[in-house]
């Protein structure tokens, strides 16, 4: 359940995702004296995508830290802060550059609670813009969610619109375990939605059904959500559209109950197909609902190649590719 109360006087504004995330960070810094932000160019510059704009001026440089250029340092120090009582939110400028910090995330943050028998935990949020669509080429476009979804001990979250982005970041801040918070940069400014002022949270671990239908289930998340909705709306498809929002742990119950109703599944994501999130969804469905299926489970994904600069609109699953597999499933 969303905790948002539609109280009289709780103003709604049309905001983009950057503004919505900025508001969430502002609320966290304002209400939690132990919270702080760190990352490259997040202070003076307000972040290369402007998500932290104005926060240095408001909260000072002890709590909005422009760090040296070193991802393992950013994440490694953030984990130490978290284990000793702070609530750090680290920004990785592009998810493509998170890999120097991979060891810190996988071997330190994700394992602290387990190896210390619960004496330490690391409530750190690692925000990272991800995905293509901004002409970023190989190193400003990757969707690396699978690396993290494969790591027990982490939460992996990704919003697909401004409203969810704000509420999800506020929800992440309440978790006492490490969170990889993936922000679909293609959607940073391309869509606006109603965003209430003040605090509300989006539940972690719950998918959202964005369209209700009986004939097919389309499962997606993050930056592919608007494209999938376009396909469904333009073609009047009788489809359940599920926005996962939480990639680890996935909302199994919602997936399975939708699949049992429709018997047909298409999974759409930007990341390469092999061992992508779609592979796990497909396995979960075949273990639990294979007898309900009328057609094979199809995945529409980025290609199993590095991310190209010139042809990115063809690399990303487009409406035609999605529709092709939806029809293939429906006609099977």
């Amino acid at each position: 359940m969303d905790t948002r109360r539609r109280k009289e006087g709780m103003a709604m504004r049309q905001l983009n995702m950057v503004q919505a995330l900025n508001e969430a960070l502002d609320i966290i810094l304002n209400t939690d004296p132990y919270s702080l932000l760190l990352g490259e160019d997040i202070g003076r510059d307000g972040g290369v995508f402007r998500v932290t704009d104005g926060l240095l001026q408001k909260y000072g440089k002890e709590r909005v830290i422009d760090t040296p250029l070193n991802e393992l340092g950013i994440v490694g120090t953030a984990i130490g802060m978290a284990a000793y009582g702070l609530r750090p939110i680290a920004e990785i400028q592009f998810q493509d550059f998170i890999f120097p910090a991979f060891d810190q995330i996988v071997n330190q943050a994700a394992k602290i609670r387990y190896r210390s028998g619960g004496k330490f935990n690391a409530p750190v949020i690692i925000r990272a813009p991800y995905g293509g669509g901004i002409k970023g080429g190989l190193y400003h476009s990757q969707s690396g969610e699978s690396y993290f979804v494969h790591t027990p001990g982490l939460y992996v979250l990704t919003p697909s619109n401004p409203y969810d982005a704000k509420g999800l970041l506020l929800a992440a801040h309440k978790l006492n375990d490490p969170v990889i918070f993936l922000e679909p940069k293609r959607l940073y400014r391309s869509i606006k939605s109603d965003v209430p002022e003040g605090e509300y949270t989006i539940p972690v671990g719950k998918a959202k059904k964005l369209r209700e239908g009986d004939k097919i289930t389309i499962i997606t998340y993050g930056s592919m959500v608007p494209t999938v909705l376009n396909v469904v709306d333009k073609n009047n498809l009788d489809a359940d559209v599920m926005d996962l929002i939480t990639l680890l742990p996935m909302d199994l119950d919602s997936i399975i109950s939708s699949v049992k109703k429709t018997g047909r599944v298409v999974i759409v994501h930007e990341a390469p197909r092999t061992l992508g999130v779609g592979a796990e969804i497909s396995a979960l469905i075949s273990e639990r609902a294979i007898e309900y299926l009328y057609a094979p489970i199809f995945r529409v994904t980025g290609f199993d190649t590095p991310f190209p600069y010139a042809n990115e609109e063809h690399y990303l699953p487009d409406e035609d590719r999605i529709l092709k597999y939806v029809r293939k499933s429906l006609e099977y």
């Binding site: 490694g76 120090t77 984990i79 130490g80 802060m81 284990a83």
Partner: peptide, 11 residues
């Protein structure tokens, strides 16, 4: 644990 230690000092 060395960067971690710097974060612990920050806390």
């Amino acid at each position: 644990h060395l960067p971690f230690a710097v974060g612990a000092a920050y806390a």
